[in-house]
Amino acid sequence: MCTGRCSQCLAVALYPTAFTSILCNILLFFPNWDVKYAREGHLTEEVLYMGGLVGGGIMVLASALYIHQTGVRGCCANRCGMFISIAFAAVGVVGALYSFLVAFLALQNGPTCYNSLFWGQHFKDSTYLKNPTTWGECSEPKNVVVFNTGLFATLLATSALQMLLCAIQVINGLVGCVGGTCLNKGPL
């Protein structure tokens, strides 16, 4: 397979992951589908880091756009274009890694909630994911543990896939940079 075609395939695979990351991060601002928790400042700290919006979203999307253009310019583009795609793929890896780490920390620390005494991250330093019976300790927002766990787990999986795809593009870019253009000059 031509390295240009491979770049296009990788970029097309990155687009939905970037949009999924952005959507998950936006939804995390509305636990229990209500804006009052964001307005009152009762959001999980990791939501405010915006790993899905900035890292897995904007940084990966910018990488995907350039990687896609590298493949569009002709079979394998040129050596300089493939070299630059390595840098953009590295930006994508860094963005996806940021999203991954934020999601991992959020799953480890648990959501911010009210436990009939005070607001806080009551599951910090606990194994709440292994013990769903403790999830009822959070009285407000309703079902926040399931809400946050589902969205942050989606961000975790999505960012792991993004890191893999961007790492493949780094290798693909190296091959295109060293090997040059394809012998087949036909349309993509």
Rank of each mutant, 00 (worst) to 15 (best):
T134L: 09
V54M: 15
S126Q: 14
M1C: 03
R73M: 13
I58M: 12
L174V: 07
V91A: 06
T3K: 08
P111I: 07
K124E: 08
C166E: 00
G179D: 03
V54E: 13
C24P: 06
G136D: 00
T20F: 03
C76S: 12
G186N: 11
V47A: 11
G41E: 10
V146P: 00
G74R: 06
T181H: 09
G176P: 00
G57L: 07
I22T: 13
G51F: 08
T17P: 11
L107I: 05
C113G: 08
Y66E: 05
A77N: 13
Q108C: 09
S139G: 03
N115S: 10
L164R: 04
K130D: 14
S63L: 03
I171G: 01
G180D: 13
G173K: 01
V47M: 07
M1I: 01
G95N: 08
C24V: 10
G74W: 05
V54Q: 13
L101H: 00
N172D: 02
F152M: 03
E137R: 06
L48H: 14
I22Q: 10
Y66A: 02
G74N: 04
A87K: 03
A96I: 01
V35D: 09
C6N: 09
C9I: 09
T17V: 14
V144A: 00
A13L: 14
A90C: 10
A103M: 05
C80P: 07
C75K: 05
A38W: 09
F100M: 07
L155T: 00
M163F: 11
V60K: 06
G52T: 09
D34A: 15
F123H: 07
L183G: 12
S7T: 06
L151T: 01
N131Q: 13
Q162D: 07
G95K: 03
I67Y: 08
F19P: 08
N32I: 02
L23C: 12
P16A: 14
W135T: 05
G71F: 04
R73D: 04
A160D: 02
G56M: 05
N115V: 04
Y37L: 03
W119K: 15
L183Q: 15
F118H: 15
C177K: 03
P111W: 01
E140Y: 07
L164Q: 04
Q108E: 14
V94D: 10
T133E: 12
A62N: 14
A62D: 10
C2Q: 12
A160W: 02
P16Q: 15
Y37E: 08
E46R: 10
G120C: 13
N143E: 10
L165M: 01
T158V: 10
Q69K: 15
V145E: 00
L14D: 14
R39Y: 15
V145D: 00
A62V: 15
E46K: 14
T20N: 02
L97V: 04
P141E: 05
K124M: 13
F147D: 06
C182T: 07
F123G: 04
L10W: 09
M163C: 15
T154D: 03
S99I: 07
C24N: 10
V102M: 09
M59G: 05
T181V: 11
L48C: 15
C2F: 03
M1W: 03
L14Y: 11
Y128L: 12
P31Q: 09
K185C: 06
N109D: 14
N78G: 14
I171C: 06
I26R: 13
L27P: 12
L183F: 08
S7L: 01
L129D: 01
L151N: 04
I168E: 02
N78H: 06
